[in-house]
């Protein structure tokens, strides 16, 4: 069925339709200079971006799942996440990452109130909400209300501990192994561990 041409489809702006901001202009200029001076090539830049984009929460989930089935690995993970990740062939990068372990009594959640520090090499790029002012300012002030908006209602007897990554460390939440997973193998366990479980805005759930 044809439609009248005086009734155009709503126009969705293309990416170039918004004006370049100050920082976009600065970034473009800096990139052009670095390329022109041969500091790196366009191909190297693309490969680096591909490497960054290839990271996903699957790597973090493997660490969590392994820690659930191997208590000695769990100890090593709590001592040094980057070294424990190397054991599994995962490059967690040069910035130290610290695992904060949930217990029956303590629920951990991470934030970077100053900017958006995030264990990117284990979880992939941070979600936009993690970088938002709303999350960064509210989760230190009213963590339970924020977690409730994520669908996570914590019992009164559980203490919430918010970790504000203000310095040279990144944090990774090590959630509790859910009941009903006895005897599960590592890949099946890892499939329960979502990105938000390792931020602390969710808990692993066994499909029922």
């Amino acid at each position: 069925m044809s439609h009248p041409h005086d009734d155009p489809h709503p126009h969705q702006p293309d990416i170039e339709d918004a004006p370049l901001g100050y920082h976009e202009t600065l970034t473009e200029a800096l990139l052009a200079l670095l390329r022109d001076k041969g500091v790196f090539s366009a191909d190297e830049l693309r490969r680096t971006l591909e490497e960054i984009d290839s990271r996903s929460p699957a790597d973090g989930a493997r660490l969590v799942a392994r820690s659930w089935i191997d208590p000695a690995f769990r100890e090593r993970l709590l001592h040094d996440v980057n070294a424990a990740a190397r054991e599994l062939g995962i490059d967690a990068g040069g910035i130290p990452i610290r695992a904060v372990a949930d217990t029956e009594q303590v629920h951990n959640v991470i934030v970077c109130t100053l900017c958006s520090c995030y264990p990117r090499l284990l979880l992939g790029a941070a979600p936009d909400w993690y970088k938002s002012r709303a999350y960064r300012s509210r989760v230190v002030r009213e963590p339970r209300a924020v977690l409730r908006e994520f669908g996570l209602e914590l019992p009164d007897e559980v203490q919430v501990v918010v970790h504000d990554a203000t310095a040279e460390l990144r944090y990774l939440v090590l959630p509790c192994r859910p009941a009903g997973t006895e005897g599960w193998d590592e890949p099946a366990l890892a499939a329960l561990v979502t990105r938000d479980c390792m931020i602390g805005t969710a808990m692993p759930i066994v499909p029922g």
Binding site: V140, R144, V161, H163, D164, T166, E168, L169
Partner: peptide
């Protein structure tokens, strides 16, 4: 650089959501 723990009561006083919850900053 230290990991320093604060009670929500210390940080937010009367406005604290739950006084016994904590925030840890570096």
């Amino acid at each position: 650089v230290y990991r320093v723990a604060f009670s929500q009561a210390e940080l937010w006083g009367e406005a604290a959501e739950r006084t016994s919850d904590r925030t840890v900053a570096d």
